[in-house]
């Protein structure tokens, strides 16, 4: 018995060590390695909740181990500590109702606070107006329209650091979601309505973004790159694009909308001049033009067919 207990203690002592390993490993995970205030905010809340959750897990695991080890029916135990008529305890019931309730209240307060904060541009850069980008998803690609700069990109994004980005998001066809884990959580894009998402990068770098809501065959490859760069580098890119990229014509845009995969592209005008998929009137714009195209498969395999797998 004693031997068994020592054995158990040895294993239990490994627990904190495991925790340290676990937490240090976590810092490399994209969501827990935020590159902007929104993701930072969410990471802080995640870590805050994990503390309470670990607390609960540890309490239950310790109690569980204690019960199973101590009250196991082993030879020679007899009727010591055996009480078959023990059927409940009101005080305990109240205790283990109240404590979780308290934990939930503690978690709810920052949760609700953060929810409201996420609906506004981050406060750290409230002195600057957010950069407005219309993000339009279509099977299976992304269009990013910069109305102020009059630029439209396909499957990549340039953003200035230390400035809030206001995504006005909609979808040309199926429901999709814009997710850049390093910069913050996702939101759906839908045809016929506009959703708003505020993100911001604090560090320059290249981040991965993608559609995270399943929408058919090309879903896996519906990714894009986010280039976060200083305000100067951003305006250089803007100037370059305005000067060198071709205009986006409606015919060209309609062709691009056709379900399929696309490479990165740049245009020096936006599709917003003739269609905004976020409005009820333009909800069926893509489906009217490409209804027949959905009947065909891409025959998409890993490493073949996919132009932008490396992103």
């Amino acid at each position: 018995m004693k031997h068994r207990k020592q054995h158990l203690m040895k294993w239990l002592s490994l627990l904190p060590l495991g925790l340290i390993l676990f937490l240090s490993g976590c810092s490399e995970l994209t969501v827990l390695d935020p590159k902007g205030p929104v993701a930072q905010n969410q990471k802080d809340l995640i870590m805050f909740s994990i503390i309470f959750m670990l607390l609960i897990v540890i309490v239950v695991f310790v109690l569980f181990t204690y019960m199973v080890v101590k009250y196991r029916d082993r030879p020679g135990r007899g009727n010591k500590d055996y009480d078959p008529s023990l059927h409940g305890n009101t005080r305990l019931e109240i205790l283990w109702t109240i404590i979780p309730l308290i934990i939930i209240v503690i978690l709810s307060v920052p949760n609700v606070q953060t929810l409201y904060e996420l609906e506004k541009p981050p406060e750290s850069t409230s002195n600057k107006d957010p950069l407005v980008i219309y993000a339009t998803s279509a099977d299976w690609k992304w269009f990013f329209s910069y109305p102020e700069q009059d630029i439209e990109t396909v499957n990549y994004l340039h953003i200035p650091t230390d400035r809030a980005i206001e995504f006005r998001m909609s979808s040309a066809d199926s429901m999709q979601a814009l997710w850049i884990p390093a910069l913050g959580g996702q939101k759906y894009t839908m045809a016929g309505m506009e959703t708003k998402l505020y993100l911001q990068a604090d560090e320059p770098g290249m981040y991965k973004g993608r559609n995270s809501n399943f929408n058919g065959e090309g879903f896996t490859e519906q990714t894009f790159e986010v280039h976060a760069e200083s305000e100067e580098a951003f305006s250089d890119w803007v100037n370059e694009s305005q000067n060198e990229a071709p205009d986006l014509t409606q015919d060209k845009y309609d062709e691009l909308l056709k379900p399929g995969l696309l490479n990165e592209m740049t245009f020096s005008s936006t599709h917003l001049q003739w269609v905004n998929h976020g409005t009820m009137a333009d909800k069926d714009y893509a489906i009217k033009r490409h209804r027949e195209a959905y009947k065909e498969l891409l025959h998409l395999e890993n490493g073949k067919e996919d132009g932008n797998n490396e992103h």
């Binding site: 969501v31 969410q42 809340l45 978690l107 979601a177 913050g184 996702q186």
Partner: peptide, 16 residues
Amino acid sequence: TGVMLGMAATDYQYHN
């Protein structure tokens, strides 16, 4: 982890 997912503000990062 269900409780963590239930916290909407962080669910934006876990969802899907």
